[in-house]
């Protein structure tokens, strides 16, 4: 401090004024975003965990601490057990299928050429279309009586299918819509990963005599592990919390065959006004998603 003629910088009024101004400026930069994130993202999550230990809706103002009662009653409830199984089934099919298709699409359009970029834009196009619109549209097209899909099937000699009206086909129809909408989106992430793989690496693999499949398996896949991990994790989370097709088309039916947990949670809260139980479902879903993501990250962790 002696270099400043004995005045330490903290006590110099000019510097001090500057420091305060600078500090306030920093606050103005970060506080709005952080405040909004805390209020609208962090707080609701905490509320959901906290609220799952209480019963009676917040609407009446009376709340009663019940411990794990909401969770216990969930696992005694056959409707919830059913929706748990349905959710697992939906995820075990949708997520892997979506990622494999996304990967194939990404590999097909990764080379920079005019045809590739045309197809790339077409494959990306459903991103611009809301899942709600996709559901409405496909629901009309999959109508067993006057839907265009059955007309097309009729052209190749396949009988009219029941789609959403059948217990066995409703889930598959839902998965079809989710894939129609989702594959292009995940393709985009994988595509950025593939396009980062340097041309010289691919070239040297070709010179070394590696075939197409060999190149994909031994070079491209290991090099896009980062994007792949991101896609696997994000896709898992978004599919575990799938809500729109159930609410818009099936309402959980026929016979509970498409009754995803998120829809049950919505119904429990907003139709039966049992928010404690609804929070318990959401909390379970979040914990489960977190656990799955942890396992996925462990399995996919890059080894280098």
């Amino acid at each position: 401090m002696s270099r400043n003629n004995g005045i330490s910088p903290g006590y110099n009024p000019e510097i001090r004024k500057f420091k305060i101004r600078s500090g306030i400026e920093t606050l103005v930069f970060v506080v709005p975003a952080l405040l909004l994130l805390i209020i609208f993202k962090i707080y609701p999550i905490l509320l959901s965990f906290f609220g799952s230990f209480f019963t009676e809706s917040f609407l009446t103002g009376k709340t009663l601490f019940v411990g794990f009662e909401n969770y216990v009653s969930l696992f005694r409830d056959s409707i919830f057990i059913n929706s748990l199984i349905v959710t697992l089934k939906f995820n075990l099919i949708t997520t892997p299928v979506q990622i494999v298709i996304a990967l194939i699409l990404a590999l097909l359009v990764s080379k920079p050429s005019r045809t590739s970029s045309t197809f790339r834009v077409i494959f990306m196009m459903p991103i611009a279309i809301a899942l709600t619109s996709a559901c409405m549209l496909w629901n009309i097209m999959l109508n067993p009586n006057q839907g265009i899909v059955n007309s097309i099937l009729g052209l190749v000699g396949i009988d009219a299918q029941p789609f959403f009206t059948s217990k066995t086909q409703a889930m598959m129809s839902m998965i079809l819509i989710c894939n129609w909408r989702g594959c292009g989106y995940w393709m985009l992430y994988l595509l950025t990963g593939i396009q980062d793989v340097s041309q010289s690496v691919l070239e040297s693999a070709r010179i070394d005599g590696a075939g197409r499949l060999r190149t994909i398996w031994s070079i491209i896949l290991p090099m896009i592990k980062r994007s792949m991990m991101f896609v696997v994790v994000s896709d898992t989370i978004s599919n575990l919390l799938m809500f729109i097709p159930v609410h818009m088309i099936t309402l959980g039916g026929p016979e509970g065959s498409t009754d995803l947990i998120m829809y049950e949670a919505y119904k429990t809260g907003f139709v039966y006004a049992d928010f404690g139980k609804s929070y318990a479902m959401v909390s379970l879903l979040i914990i489960f998603a977190f656990a799955v993501v942890m396992v996925e990250m462990k399995l996919l962790k890059p080894k280098y």
Binding site: L34, L37, I45, S48, I237
Partner: peptide, 20 residues
């Protein structure tokens, strides 16, 4: 904290957010 919020999908907080 920002990174953590990135991982929270909106559907997960929609119901508690309603009460807020």
């Amino acid at each position: 904290l920002v990174i953590v919020t990135m991982m929270i999908p909106f559907e997960a907080i929609a119901i508690p957010l309603y009460s807020l």
